[in-house]
């Protein structure tokens, strides 16, 4: 396959950019270690705080990991690299695959680090529970990977960092990442349940048998993915057909 060499170098350039990599890993890890160790004996709705907050920080870190493709795409556009690539046989699909692949590799690294920190603070999950939480997280991240591509074409290199930070924080807040939910019932709760980051936080609860991922969760993830993908296609076409 010709694209394997291309993808290999794309992964290489991602991991050599250690400043970028470090920043996306350090924040959720430090936040987890400081907050969870201070509350290691607390529980939220019958769930150990260390488990709840591990899922929350994994959600925050992985969201940031996949959305940060926007920064790479915006930079590639501003340096003229995107135009240069468009006159090679490289397909847009392969270029985006590289972005999503790198986003997911950063996300997996985040999960491993936050998971290790959780284990250090006494979190014990069975193999099945680990597989469930990681699997659900990776599926729940799909709309955010698409969001990264969309933002990469909507923003420029300067604005992408600020916008990404704001958007990830907003999704984290609405999804209940910071240890509280804005609403637990009523119409506001219906709105919260329609937000994909809510379901990322639910992944850990589902894994240990508290609540779960009903069909509603899958539908929310699928609908966001389709809508964001449609928007991304529009924005991509506007960006390239000048």
């Amino acid at each position: 396959m010709t694209s394997t060499i291309y993808l290999r170098y794309e992964v290489l350039r991602n991991f050599r950019n250690w400043r970028f990599l470090l920043l996306s890993l350090v924040f959720p890890l430090v936040l987890y270690l400081s907050v969870a160790s201070a509350n290691r004996h607390a529980t939220i709705n019958g769930i150990a705080f260390t488990v709840y907050f591990m899922a929350a920080m994994a959600t925050l870190g992985t969201m940031a990991s996949v959305v940060s493709s926007a920064a790479v795409i915006a930079a590639d556009r501003s340096t003229g690299w995107t135009r240069q690539m468009r006159i090679t046989p490289l397909t847009v699909g392969t270029y985006f695959s590289a972005r999503v692949l790198n986003g997911y590799l950063r996300a997996v690294l985040t999960i491993v680090l936050v998971g290790l920190a959780g284990t250090a603070l006494g979190v014990r999950l069975s193999a099945t529970e680990w597989v469930t939480v990681v699997g659900l997280l990776l599926v729940g991240l799909i709309p955010f990977a698409v969001l990264g591509i969309l933002l990469g074409h909507l923003l420029n290199a300067d604005s992408s960092a600020v916008a990404m930070g704001g958007i990830v924080t907003l999704f984290a807040l609405l999804g209940g990442v910071y240890g509280f939910q804005i609403a637990k019932s009523g119409p506001m709760f219906q709105v919260i349940k329609a937000i994909p980051s809510y379901w990322l936080v639910q992944a850990a609860k589902a894994a240990i048998g508290h609540g779960g991922w009903p069909a509603e969760g899958w539908i929310v993830i699928a609908v966001w993915t389709v809508l964001l993908a449609a928007l991304a296609v529009l924005v991509y076409q506007r960006d390239t057909h000048r």
């Binding site: 290489l12 350039r13 050599r16 950019n17 590639d76 340096t79 003229g80 690299w81 135009r83 240069q84 006159i87």
Partner: peptide
């Protein structure tokens, strides 16, 4: 092309 840089790293 007339302008354009290389990818880094």
């Amino acid at each position: 092309l007339q302008t354009g840089s290389l990818i880094e790293y």
